[in-house]
Design a protein around this nucleic acid. Sequence first.
DNA 1: TGACGTCAAGATCCG
DNA 2: CGGATCTTGACGTCA
Length: 449
Amino acid sequence: MKYNRGNKLVLWRRTENECCFCKFLFEVAVVMSIGYACLSVGVPGTDFKSCVMKNAGEERLRDVIAQNLSALENLIEYNIRNHIYLFRISSDIIPFGSSPVNSLAWWDLFEPSLTRIGARIHAAGMRVSMHPGQYTILNSPTQEVVARAVEDLRYHTRFLGALHTGPENKIILHIGGIYGNKDEAVQRFIDEYQKLDDDIKLRLVLENDERSYHICDVLDIARQIGAPAVFDNLHHAIHPCSVDLPDSDWIHACAGTWKDQDGRQKIHYSQQSPDKRRGAHTDSIRIDEFLSFYQNIHGGNIDIMLEVKDKNLSAVKCINCTTGAARMAYLELDWSRYKYLILEKAPGVYHQIRELLKDRDSYPAVEFYHLVEFALKEEAAKGNQINAALHVWGYFKKFASENEKKLCMRHLQKLETQKDDSAGFKRFLLRLAQKYDQKYLLDSLYFYL
DNA sequence: TGACGTCAAGATCCG
DNA sequence: CGGATCTTGACGTCA
């Protein structure tokens, strides 16, 4: 259960099957988890549904909740398969979960599935969290707003409780608005916090935001009420406090607010998108930038929640580039998902990566993701679109019907003669992959990015 | 009063 | 009718 790679002792993560000795090792080992929020990219069977208020009847709500719990279960299984042990559950998992619009006793109705999902989370050693949106505000001067916020926190607490997760599975909250007087607004937050049910307080952690409450404010409040503080690096970059310290120092300062019962310290990590508004997240985590951040905080026994558009893809990338359990199979698995996309965008890089992964005794994770990042920035030229599409078509050649062959030819001709992109062709190929149940293809990012 | 952010539902348009 | 594209919804604060 432990082995040596180079001169570095590597500890396996705890699983259901491991012995007591290893569980002991797990307890004392420094383990950092990296995770992602709410949704996944390119994982079949994990789509979430919602409904608008006027359609939120009992039957519709049941349907949506059943579908969402099934999606959550599939997501958890995907996370386990991909060694992702930190995950934020979407607040929208139960539509109108804190509103009188939804009067279903969903925690009873769906008890078997909630219990089953919770057991999988627990057995895998996964940590989950929830994060009510920017509209859940405890310090509003408007009583009704506060009352709804309290209801919303009750809902989040109830959901994590229905999964039978412990208090280290957190609910992350911002402080709220200023309303023209910050001191009074902070005091209102503290007063309202004190009134909360104990099971909510056990889970609540406070996060710095990008406009009103910087990390000094949050640390100050967190210490007063005895709640843990989550440091968000991008919010901090946009809205820093007057004391100028490196991120690692703020993270260290936050560490003191985390008690044993809270589990490992958590932080949020994201990067500024170069061409969007301030605070907008990148499409994918730029690995070099992440690794230099990571090196500065390494050894801190910290969980890192990534906030990024490509979600699980960046989580896998960052995990593969930092894991102690380095295995070529992890890179090969990720390569199998990127390969046709990269073949389409940059065939030269496609061949470079194939060469790179040939040496099975190496673990060139960072080089691999450098090449992936480079390739994904490229625009697919028409000839390469055709080439990649034909590669994918190759999976169906043998059993495709005459009509499907005809349709394929038509898509090919259309792609050759028009300026049109390959979206229609890809949809056609995805439908074939579904029809002929080509599992390998169904996981390909070629269809989803 | 609209921007802010976020995602899918809902609405509408097109062939 | 199916697919593609545009608009709406649900939330609270602040300019």
